[in-house]
Amino acid sequence: MALWVLLGALVLVQICYPLTHGGARAGLTVTTVVIGYALSVAHAGLSRGARAAVALVATATLGGFAVEAVGVATGFPFGTYDYTGRLGPQVLGVPLIIPLAWTWMAWPAWLAALRLARSRPARIALAAAGLAAWDLFLDPQMVAEGYWRWHSPTPALPGVPGIPVGNYLGWLGFALVLMAVLAVAAGAPGNRPGDRDAPMLALWLWTYASSVLAHAVFLGLPWSALWGGVLMGAAVLPLLPALRRPA
């Protein structure tokens, strides 16, 4: 029940996001990530034990911070970029909220892949593709708000200026590493009742659907709605018929 309450709070905050501006919107961004982080880590621990929760934090939180710090310092693997300071305290040029965002979405991406694929390599590939495709929504939205910026934002996807294509490739590369390590570190998936993962699968589906709607209707970002809708949809939409089958 507590996980569903957290999910409800996250949905409510995200609904409020397009209704605000400036500092209030930045505050809702941070709040969303904190709630999402708590939801994912709590679910990992409750559904699969302490080992899975620790593995998630080690790979996505610590790993996410490490790759972002390297990225800000060197331009690898995302391109040359920096954060503007609007997302709160920073360490090594990285807002502390950023590695929490990696963790928040890495876990539902992994759980969806567990439901859709049987072999470990297929699960790693599918989870990484889903997580990287989420960035087709995330980066355009955050760049539009001025939370971070690229120094060399070309070549970019058609209709999505300000973000180099190499950034998305960097996301995919790191996501593959993250999921490969998580697959080993978290231990065997185990035979769990399907409803154990229901809050996280609902989060995954909500994130996709709400992102398409928000970008297309409320945020004035129709091209990112299209790119994200197609490419993240390829990873997310197969989950709908899969949910009708036993876990």
Rank of each mutant, 00 (worst) to 15 (best):
T154H: 04
G166P: 01
G8D: 14
W206G: 09
A180F: 04
D195C: 04
A185I: 00
L6H: 04
A52E: 15
A198F: 05
A58Y: 03
I97R: 02
A133K: 05
G88C: 07
P222Y: 06
S47Y: 05
V30M: 09
F65G: 06
F137K: 05
G75F: 07
A129D: 01
S152Y: 11
L7I: 07
V212K: 06
A234W: 10
A242L: 10
S47D: 13
G194F: 04
A55M: 07
D195W: 15
A53V: 04
W150F: 13
A216F: 05
A209W: 06
A186Q: 13
R115T: 10
D195E: 14
L100W: 06
A69S: 14
A101H: 11
T80R: 14
F76A: 08
G64P: 07
A112E: 00
W104T: 08
P222T: 05
D139G: 11
L116Q: 14
L10S: 05
T59Y: 05
S211D: 12
V30I: 15
N191E: 15
T84C: 05
L178I: 00
A234N: 03
A73M: 00
W107C: 02
G88T: 13
V143D: 03
G187E: 02
S47N: 10
W223M: 12
L138W: 07
G49W: 11
L205P: 12
Y17R: 15
A60W: 14
G162Q: 01
F78L: 01
A122E: 08
L56V: 08
V217F: 01
P161L: 01
W4S: 02
A202R: 09
L172S: 02
A185K: 02
G85L: 12
A127V: 04
L62G: 11
Y37H: 14
T61M: 12
L92M: 14
M105F: 12
R244K: 13
L46N: 00
R192P: 01
M142C: 04
I35L: 15
Y17A: 13
F78R: 01
L157T: 10
L213Y: 14
M232Y: 04
W102E: 03
T84N: 12
S224T: 14
A106H: 07
A209M: 13
W104S: 05
A128M: 10
V230I: 15
I15N: 01
S210P: 00
F65M: 04
L111P: 02
G63N: 06
S224E: 09
R48H: 14
T31W: 02
L62N: 05
P241R: 08
W206S: 13
G79E: 01
L240W: 07
A52V: 04
A128D: 12
V5L: 15
W104L: 13
V67F: 05
G22H: 05
G85R: 03
T32H: 14
V160Y: 04
G63L: 13
L219F: 06
A214R: 10
V217L: 15
G159W: 08
F218Y: 12
A44G: 02
P95I: 11
V67P: 08
T29H: 11
V30L: 00
G173I: 09
A186G: 12
L114Y: 05
T154W: 01
A242F: 09
L221D: 03
A156P: 11
L243F: 02
A156C: 13
